[in-house]
Simulated scan of single mutants.
Amino acid sequence: MTLIQKFALTYFFVLLGAALLNYVPGITDADGRAFGIFALDIFDDALHLVSAIWALSAALLGARASKIFLVIFGALYLGDGVFGWFTGYGYLDFGIFTNPSEGVSFSLFRLLANLPHIALGGIALIAGIKLGRNV
């Protein structure tokens, strides 16, 4: 298994973990927020599960599929995180369509709520581009 496939496989486990966060006792607070920062609903769980299956499929299919996954996934999740930071809601879980904009905020809370998508997306995009050069 190549390094880029291992990256995609790692994303499978991370995303599967994200999909299961709501179902582990003690992770969510009384308001349903994971770690007291962000609320995950059925749309978020479905998004993370589908993304995890996509990551696993890419890792098993080969280096080229892993590159495609990392680049597309990275761009989508990075954009979602940045968009969420500015508006309060992302587009991947349809939050921008079901909630009014909370306006621009550069608060630490807003950053922390969107940091998982910004970090996962940014790392995936960079890995896909750098490790996928010769694929």
Rank of each mutant, 00 (worst) to 15 (best):
G74L: 03
G128S: 11
L112V: 10
L115D: 05
L3P: 11
S101T: 11
L47G: 03
G74V: 01
F106P: 11
G128R: 01
G121K: 00
F109S: 14
L115N: 06
A52R: 04
F7Y: 09
K6E: 13
G132D: 09
A30M: 11
I126N: 08
L78G: 01
D31K: 10
I4M: 05
L56W: 04
A30C: 11
L16N: 00
L78M: 10
G132Y: 05
F97T: 12
Y91A: 13
A63G: 11
I37F: 01
F86V: 13
R33N: 15
G17C: 01
L70Y: 01
I4G: 02
S51R: 03
D41C: 08
F83L: 15
Y11I: 04
L40S: 02
L47D: 01
P100C: 11
F73T: 03
A58V: 07
L56P: 08
V14F: 04
T2H: 10
A75W: 03
Y91N: 13
I68G: 02
V135S: 14
Y89T: 09
L131F: 10
Y23E: 07
A55C: 09
T28S: 09
V82L: 15
G132I: 05
F38D: 00
G74H: 03
L47M: 15
N114D: 14
L21W: 02
F38H: 11
L16F: 10
L60G: 05
H117C: 07
S51P: 00
A52W: 00
I53G: 04
F94T: 12
T10G: 13
Y89W: 15
N22R: 09
V71C: 07
A75P: 06
F38K: 05
I126T: 10
G122M: 09
G81Q: 00
H48E: 06
I42L: 15
K6D: 10
G84K: 00
L21S: 04
D29A: 06
G17V: 06
L76G: 06
L21Q: 05
I42S: 15
S51E: 07
G32Y: 03
L125C: 09
G32C: 07
G88D: 10
V24F: 02
A39K: 14
R64V: 12
P100S: 13
G88N: 12
L20F: 08
D80G: 06
A39D: 12
A34M: 04
A59Y: 00
F94W: 15
V104L: 15
